[in-house]
Write a protein that binds this DNA or RNA. Structure first.
Lengths: 195, 195
DNA sequence: AGATTAACCGAATGTTCGGTCGGGACAAGG
DNA sequence: CCTTGTCCCGACCGAACATTCGGTTAATCT
């Protein structure tokens, strides 16, 4: 096997560039010309690394979904009272969203025009339902208010968390910044704005 | 002046159709061909009513912004303690968002590729800052928790409200449904999930 | 040194895009 | 009944689109 020493693109490193551009211009608003300019290689060279535009999208949303579903398998999401598990998932979802920001951003914006997008939307709905069940359990155990429907509350909770992709930008090496955001999300979600 | 009796499109009625398609496929993912099929007239006929694709976008986001900024001029947003004014704006923003759902949806999704989109983003930021100032006042008056930064809290609050466009669909003639959503938003925002 | 191969490129492919053009149908005013 | 203006259409245009193709370069393997 040959191993080129000059720095070169892998499907993964190319994906990182592409996802940045997708998020800036929108997937449909991004041409292969845009991608090639951002990557610093020619349009045709991109096809050496990936099958095409849609494969880049598929890899990106796949990575985001992997991160999100991974949370549900962690110990904190499976053990203890439902309200503690929900708080854990809330915290971890926020963390994963910030860790994998560009990929999750892209996932949250797919509109369903291609089969890849429809697949992503379906898997996302699946994740939502898993968390909705968790919230419903916490209400049943008496730890969460019962005067707001579980499905509705889940949607508003995720609405708050997911909105991070609209404004959060990683702050250099300081993860103190990130932890502050996570705390704010958990506090506001569970205890509200009121003093 | 001639007055055709056969039912025909006005810029406004055409806009309503266009905005639906924009929201389904995304603005960039919508071609004039898609619009013409949805409107039931030919592509070229669309240009009889509007200057082009971007004018439709401009009219739509303009209408959304009009509705949002209108809230800030209402009495409830100008009188009383800051926390009450913030609660009023929260409630009314949710209501306007549901009333003008398709238009606000489009507004919240612009990415900044055209000058119209950049204009919309700027005006939106302006609205955000007005509300952020309100929230900051409420913290200063001791009615809201001080352990979460005002700017951050505003973003999370709007994140929750704005997420409505991702899932809320008007329920026939029943506005009881809508009022339930408004109540849930205000309750969760100010008092949290906890029982 | 010669063969192989990953990485890349410029030029061209067919397709779809937003938008234009000349004209037809039809109602209202004279 | 003939003009005038509204509303619409099919045919078309240049540009931009995603993708393909034939070939070049340079590093690795034998």
């Amino acid at each position: 096997m040959t191993m080129p020493k000059r720095d070169t693109y892998t499907p993964e490193s190319l994906l990182a560039v592409a996802v940045e551009v997708f998020n800036e211009r929108g997937y449909d608003g991004t041409s292969m010309e845009h991608l090639s300019r951002a990557a610093g290689i020619s349009k045709s060279s991109i096809y050496h690394h990936v099958r095409g535009k849609e494969e880049l999208l598929h890899r990106a949303v796949g990575r985001a979904l992997e991160g999100l579903f991974g949370i549900l398998d962690e110990r904190g999401a499976c053990e203890g009272r439902a309200v503690r598990r929900l708080e854990y998932v809330t915290r971890r979802t926020t963390e994963v969203l910030m860790d994998e920001l560009p990929y999750v951003t892209l996932l949250l914006r797919v509109r369903g025009n291609t089969s890849t997008e429809r697949w992503a939307m379906e898997r996302r709905r699946e994740f939502d339902q898993r968390v909705s069940a968790l919230l419903k359990d916490a209400v049943a155990e008496g730890d969460l208010r019962a005067d707001v429907e579980a499905r509705l509350a889940t949607r508003l909770l995720f609405g708050m968390i997911n909105s991070l992709v609209e404004w959060y930008r990683p702050d250099g090496r300081a993860s103190a910044d990130a932890q502050q955001v996570v705390d704010a999300v958990v506090r506001l979600a569970f205890d509200g704005l009121r003093a």
